[in-house]
Design a binder for these strands. Structure first.
Lengths: 181, 181
DNA sequence: CACAAAATCCAGAAAAAACAGAAATATGAA
DNA sequence: TTCATATTTCTGTTTTTTCTGGATTTTGTG
């Protein structure tokens, strides 16, 4: 992995560090580098930014910024804001960390779990229709499906809880341990 | 995304469906397609397979299979087994779903969370050393760091629990809700 | 030890993803 | 409505990742 700083950004060093890091992590988070960098910029920035300034700050093509912003808006983590005496659209990120990761997790579940759950269910149906498949394979499908169903159910359950409960769940790590035994 | 079935596999249709799906999901899971396909093959297969047969089943270069197997072994999800009267190494996947996802999650935490936690700590230190950074940015760093610390702690906590407790935690979705309020 | 089979390394080809820049379109103020 | 500015779409280029095939090394067997 190459860490290239093509045009050095004229940003607060702290900001720059964060933006670069977010960008590097992007690929690991299943997000393109640019999208991740823009999000970092908007999240940590004190004020909403117009596309131009993002282009300038990151030193990339205007069009690319446009596309990336659209993606962020689709996910709902970035909103359009209007600033007095400025015709341009300004963008700002959701600031609440919990809300942010809620969106992120939902998205990941949708992309990484749901399709597999679907496939496993289809496979299970196939097996019930009596294909000649090895018993061991059948067993593995059963196990895997059960696991995914369980996780899916749990996620739904936790997801429906009020935010405060979820916060408690995480903050009460130690108490949890006692309660479970 | 192109779904190419270059050489059709001579596999049980159920197996083929699973292998192809695993492959497609691989990229979303942060795993290369080949690695994911091989893992599916070994996980669902009734018996350990030698590299040759994997090569043949998936229709890819022998060397690539070798590299992918090495990666799977590094993670610890695939082990080498020896079969009587066969000089070749045979490979088999861990079969326990919980153990499997434990490894997977640990790996993802290591790659997706830990580096950011580190960066945020460094950033925090930088801020304490008195850089001229906007108060809003400082606040966002604080929030984000607090969130990551919390999650990191929680993961450690849950991770240290005995497996049965973790299973309970997931199975008791509904009870959990009551306990938290 | 020798030799054959298996496994791996490595350089480069192929495929996929990210990105640039110009052309086209849309938007709002006068 | 017109004009200037802001935004998006589209096509081609660059970069990154995945994969191939032969060369090399390792491993087990007689």
């Amino acid at each position: 992995m190459l860490i290239s700083v093509k045009t050095e950004m004229k940003l607060d060093p702290v900001m720059e560090k964060l933006v670069l890091h977010w960008g590097e992590m992007g690929s690991r988070w299943g997000i393109s580098r640019m999208v991740a960098q823009i999000h970092a910029l908007l999240y940590f920035s004190p004020k909403p930014l117009p596309a131009d300034e993002i282009t300038e700050a990151l030193g990339v093509a205007r069009s690319h910024v446009s596309n990336s912003l659209k993606e962020l808006q689709t996910w709902g983590v970035v909103k359009v804001v209007h600033v007095m005496d400025d015709r341009r659209e300004h963008f700002q990120s959701i600031k609440d960390v919990w809300q942010l990761f809620e969106i992120l997790l939902d998205e990941r579940k949708r992309r990484e779990l749901d399709p597999t759950l679907k496939t496993l269910r289809e496979t299970q149906a196939l097996l019930n229709d009596g294909t000649m498949t090895d018993p061991h394979t059948r067993e593995r499908v059963k196990d895997m499906l059960a696991f995914f169903e369980l996780m899916d159910g749990w996620y739904g359950e936790v997801r429906r809880m009020p935010l405060e409960s979820r916060v408690k769940l995480v903050k009460w790590g130690t108490r949890l341990r006692g309660w479970l035994s």
